[in-house]
Measured scan of single mutants.
Amino acid sequence: MPSETPQAEVGPTGCPHRSGPHSAKGSLEKGSPEDKEAKEPLWIRPDAPSRCTWQLGRPASESPHHHTAPAKSPKILPDILKKIGDTPMVRINKIGKKFGLKCELLAKCEFFNAGGSVKDRISLRMIEDAERDGTLKPGDTIIEPTSGNTGIGLALAAAVRGYRCIIVMPEKMSSEKVDVLRALGAEIVRTPTNARFDSPESHVGVAWRLKNEIPNSHILDQYRNASNPLAHYDTTADEILQQCDGKLDMLVASVGTGGTITGIARKLKEKCPGCRIIGVDPEGSILAEPEELNQTEQTTYEVEGIGYDFIPTVLDRTVVDKWFKSNDEEAFTFARMLIAQEGLLCGGSAGSTVAVAVKAAQELQEGQRCVVILPDSVRNYMTKFLSDRWMLQKGFLKEEDLTEKKPWWWHLRVQELGLSAPLTVLPTITCGHTIEILREKGFDQAPVVDEAGVILGMVTLGNMLSSLLAGKVQPSDQVGKVIYKQFKQIRLTDTLGRLSHILEMDHFALVV
Rank of each mutant, 00 (worst) to 15 (best):
S3T: 11
E4A: 10
T5Y: 14
P6Q: 09
P12A: 06
T13L: 11
C15I: 05
C15T: 09
H17E: 11
R18D: 14
S19C: 06
G20A: 15
P21D: 14
S23A: 11
K30W: 09
G31T: 10
E34H: 10
E34P: 06
K36I: 12
K36P: 10
A38N: 10
P41S: 11
P41N: 11
I44C: 08
I44T: 12
C52K: 00
C52S: 01
T53H: 09
T53C: 07
Q55E: 12
G57D: 13
P59Y: 05
P59I: 14
A60C: 10
S63I: 07
P64K: 08
H66P: 08
H66L: 13
P70R: 11
K72M: 05
S73M: 13
P74N: 06
P74K: 12
P78V: 06
L81T: 08
K82V: 10
K83F: 08
K83I: 10
T87N: 08
T87H: 00
M89Y: 05
V90T: 07
I92T: 10
G96P: 11
G96I: 09
K97E: 14
K97Y: 12
K98E: 13
F99L: 07
G100T: 05
G100N: 10
L101N: 01
K102L: 09
K102Y: 04
E104W: 05
F111K: 04
F111T: 04
N113T: 02
G116M: 13
S117A: 06
V118C: 07
V118H: 11
K119F: 02
K119I: 02
R121Q: 02
I122C: 03
S123P: 08
L124E: 11
R125Q: 08
M126G: 03
M126K: 06
M126W: 03
R132L: 07
G134V: 04
G134W: 07
G134C: 07
P138F: 10
G139F: 12
D140P: 05
I142Y: 01
I143V: 03
E144A: 02
E144D: 06
S147P: 01
S147G: 06
N149Y: 01
T150M: 01
T150Y: 03
T150P: 03
G151L: 00
G151R: 00
I152W: 00
G153K: 01
L154A: 04
L154F: 05
L156I: 06
L156M: 07
A158T: 05
A158L: 02
A158M: 02
A158I: 02
A159N: 07
V160P: 02
Y163M: 01
C165K: 01
V168T: 04
M173P: 02
S174V: 00
S174T: 03
K177R: 02
K177Y: 00
D179Q: 02
V180I: 04
L181V: 06
A183Y: 01
L184V: 03
A186G: 06
I188M: 06
V189M: 10
R190C: 02
R190K: 14
P192S: 10
T193I: 09
N194R: 05
R196K: 13
R196Q: 11
F197N: 06
D198E: 09
D198Q: 07
S199K: 06
E201H: 10
G205I: 07
G205A: 03
V206L: 13
A207H: 00
R209F: 06
N216T: 08
S217W: 02
H218Q: 09
I219A: 04
L220C: 04
R224V: 05
L230Y: 09
Y233P: 00
D234A: 09
D234Y: 10
D234E: 09
T235H: 04
T235P: 03
T236D: 01
A237R: 01
D238A: 11
D238K: 10
E239Y: 00
Q242P: 03
Q243F: 06
L248I: 12
D249M: 01
M250T: 03
V252E: 09
V255Y: 03
V255R: 02
G256A: 04
G258P: 01
I261S: 02
G263M: 01
I264V: 13
P273A: 05
P273M: 14
G274H: 12
R276P: 10
